[in-house]
Structure formats: structure tokens, C-alpha cells
Simulated scan of single mutants.
Amino acid sequence: MDPRAPARKSDSDAAAVDLPSIGNPTLRIAWERYRDGHMKNKGRSDGTINNYRDHIERLLADWLDEPLSKLGTDPSLVTVRHEKLSKENGTYIANGCMRTLRAVYNHARKAARTLPADNPVSAIDWNAEHRRNTALGLSDLGEWFTQLAALKNPVRRELHLFMLLSGHRPEAIRKARVEHVDFRARVLHIPRPKGGEVKAFDIPLSRAMIRCLVRVMRIGRALYAEQSREWLFPADSQSGHIIEHKEKRSDLSKWGNDLRQTFRTIAQTAGVAELDVHLLMNHSIPGVNAGYITRNKLLSDHLRQQQEAVSHRMLEAGRPRQKEIKPRACAWPTLPSRRLLSELMSGKGLAAANVFGGSSR
């Protein structure tokens, strides 16, 4: 007989190991473990997490307290739900919801080996998906610039223009901060794009993009003095920046990812190489050899020249009707652009005229 008293487990250890919930988790518990143990640890963006949350907590809300084993042993429940979502919510969101459920189930089964090995989502017939062709062509840009100039909110006008000129995702641009703009290096840093912090990158700024940012900073100081200290595209919202970028199609025909597709299309007409487009848009670089390219080494000269070519092509195409989008006179504060730019520059070694290429604006 061992005379030593058995070791007593602490309350924290007992709380940390909840065998019933791990061995046969409900959808709610499996989702929380996937969210906190996988997505947040991998640095997934808030937008990605919120998208997954919408799938689980809204579209599959009635399943939250159901054990995953119920779905695993009866995949017909999943196929029926997929068909229902396809009819009521749309084919694309139905597919997206099932991809989320598949990921949560696979993650849960790492700890719950009693769950059926076959993922129940494998039983569905996926809806056909086609890439949306919503880009503007060169001949369409003139009308789009006219629509843009007619928008009442000057901050939103500059937001849409910058998204067109940069070709980046709306969420990343909406959340851009003043501190992330480096006018000396002529870049805008995106610290948490899609994919999380490990995908952080810098957007090279053309002259047109710099003028756009200077204008919106001037407007922000006049309209949203407090919010403009932190955000590039400020608004009177809880977060302090523009939350929703969508417009009525009757007011602005293309916005958001439509402009991202437009950037890709116009870059092709401007003669920008395929690899350079991937780098400018922060896409994954195809091929093994291309993976050895150091993106930051190309920012200061090559990629900025390519960005300049795309911006020039866009503004040239829109020039017959609208030479360049400017906020209405009533929205402009009295602070000159050169003076504001000199304040934003961290040093005095680079004159504003050099940044603007000699322009007085």
C-alpha cells in the first residue's frame, strides 16, 4: 500500500478538461474551440472570423446545441440544410456555410475521435460557382468618374477612388490608419489584411493616390476632427471610420470588389506583367521560383513605376468627362495641400514638389 496521499487535481485543471464536451461536442462548443484555438491563434482577420460566425450563429443557429455526432451519423441533415440555404439565401452563401461547417467538424474530430471519420459535408452536391465578371473597361471609366463626382459625401468619394487606384479589398482600405501612411517612402502599410498579420504588406503609392490621401486628410480635418486623427477615411460611427462602402447602384454602378477586378483588368491594358499584378494586389505568388522574390526590394522603384502606369491609364481613360475627381469646393478646408503634406512628412529632406512630381496641387 502506498502511504502517500493521492495528488489532488486543482479546480483549474478540472475546469480545463471537460471530457464530455470535448469527446462529443455540440456545434457551439466545436465552433468556439475552432474560433479561439485555430482562427485567432493563426491571426485570421476580424472580417474572416465574422464571416464564419455569421454562417454558424445565424444560418445554423438551430443546430448550435446539437451534438456533432448527430450530423456525422446522419449526413442527410446537412444535405437538406444545404438545399434549403441554396433556395432561401443563395447558392454562393450556401456553399460558404457548408465550407465553414466542414472546417469546424474537421477541427473538432482531432480531439473527438468517436466522431464519424467521414465529414457529413462530403455528402452534399455543391452549387456551381462562377467568377463574377463585374469589372469596368477603359470605355466605362468616364461614366463612372461622373457618377463618383456626384456623390454627396466627399470622404466616400475619395474612398472609392482610392479603392479603384489601389485595387485592394474594401475592408483593408476602410480600416487604414493615418499612422500607416509614410509619405517619405510613398507607401501605405496594411498590417492585418486577409490572412492576418503574417500577410502584412505595403501598398506603393502613385502620385494620384497620394493626392487622394492628402485630399481626404484635409476633408477629414474639416468634417470629423476627432476621428481623422486616427483614421484615413473617418466617419461619424462607433468605430470612427467608414463601416459600409456599398452604394446604391443607381448612384455608383461599381464599388468594392468590382473596383478590385477593374484594377486587374486595367493593369493588363497598361502592360503590367502578371507577376507584378500579383505583387501589387498582394495575391499569392504562383510558382516555386517566384516565391524567392523579396517584395520589399521591388517597392521603391519597380512596383511604384507599375502602380504609376496603372493610375495614369485609369485617369487618362476617365479624362474626357472628368479630368480628376476633386471634392466640391465647399468641402475643402483652407489648409493648403503643400502645408499639410509638409506636416505629415517625418523629415524635411524631401520637398512636397518632389512627391507631387512638380504639381502645385
Rank of each mutant, 00 (worst) to 15 (best):
D2N: 10
P6T: 05
K9S: 15
S12C: 08
A15Q: 09
A16N: 15
V17I: 14
V17H: 07
L19V: 14
L19F: 13
P25F: 04
T26I: 09
A30K: 06
E32T: 12
K40V: 12
K42Q: 15
G43P: 13
G47L: 02
T48E: 02
N51S: 08
R53M: 06
R53A: 15
D54M: 09
I56Q: 09
W63Y: 05
W63A: 06
W63F: 09
P67K: 04
P67Q: 01
P67D: 02
S76K: 15
L77E: 05
L77I: 10
V78S: 08
R81H: 01
A94N: 03
N95C: 07
G96P: 11
G96V: 14
M98E: 03
R102N: 13
V104Q: 01
N106K: 13
A108I: 12
L115M: 03
P116W: 08
A117M: 06
D118T: 14
P120K: 14
P120A: 11
V121N: 08
I124N: 02
H130A: 08
A135G: 12
S139K: 13
S139E: 14
T146G: 07
A150L: 02
A150D: 08
A150H: 01
L151A: 05
K152Q: 07
R157S: 03
S166P: 02
S166T: 04
G167T: 07
R169A: 04
R169H: 06
I173E: 05
E179Y: 02
E179A: 15
E179K: 06
H180Y: 13
V181K: 01
V181E: 09
D182K: 07
F183P: 09
F183Q: 07
R186F: 04
V187Q: 05
L188Y: 06
P193C: 06
K194H: 09
G195Y: 00
G195V: 08
E197R: 15
K199S: 05
F201T: 10
F201P: 07
I203Y: 08
L205S: 12
S206F: 00
R207E: 07
M209C: 14
R211H: 08
L213F: 12
M217I: 04
G220D: 08
G220L: 01
R221Q: 15
R221F: 06
L223C: 10
A225D: 06
E230N: 08
P234S: 01
D236T: 01
D236A: 05
E244M: 00
E244G: 03
H245G: 11
H245V: 05
K246L: 12
K248A: 15
R249N: 10
D251G: 06
G256I: 05
G256V: 13
G256P: 11
D258K: 04
D258L: 05
D258Q: 02
L259H: 06
R260L: 00
T269Q: 03
G271M: 02
V272C: 01
E274S: 03
D276P: 00
L279W: 04
V288I: 14
V288G: 02
N289A: 15
A290Y: 02
G291N: 00
I293V: 14
K297V: 06
H302A: 12
H302L: 12
L303E: 05
R304I: 00
Q307T: 00
M314P: 09
I325K: 00
P327A: 00
A331T: 05
W332P: 04
L335M: 10
R338K: 12
L341N: 12
M345E: 14
S346N: 13
S346L: 11
K348L: 10
K348A: 14
A352I: 10
G357Q: 02
S360K: 11
